[in-house]
Amino acid sequence: MDLTAETVRGIAQLARLRPSPSEEERLIQDLDAVLEFFAQLSEAEVEGIEPMAHPLEVDQRMREDEVTEPDRREDYQAIAPDAREGLYRVPAVLDSD
């Protein structure tokens, strides 16, 4: 593998992370080493093998469409960094002008 700084920056953007330039260096090195380790998988003979998403073959359960939880909005918003009047506050998304 030969990861480029550009690829790492693109992945960081997708993951909403922002590594500093020095960390970017370190990440390239580490990810390269791990991806090389992952490359072993290419030797696996998996032709015709069904992918396994889950250890037990269980179907998604359905339940009655009934209210089971009490409304605890205030408890949940009490732990937010910034909530007011039942809303979560974030920096403005739309321009004010």
Partner: peptide, 13 residues
């Protein structure tokens, strides 16, 4: 990566 790893997972099971 992910697809292949899930197939390997099946082999291990």
């Amino acid at each position: 990566y992910y697809g292949r790893a899930q197939r390997v997972r099946q082999l291990i099971r």
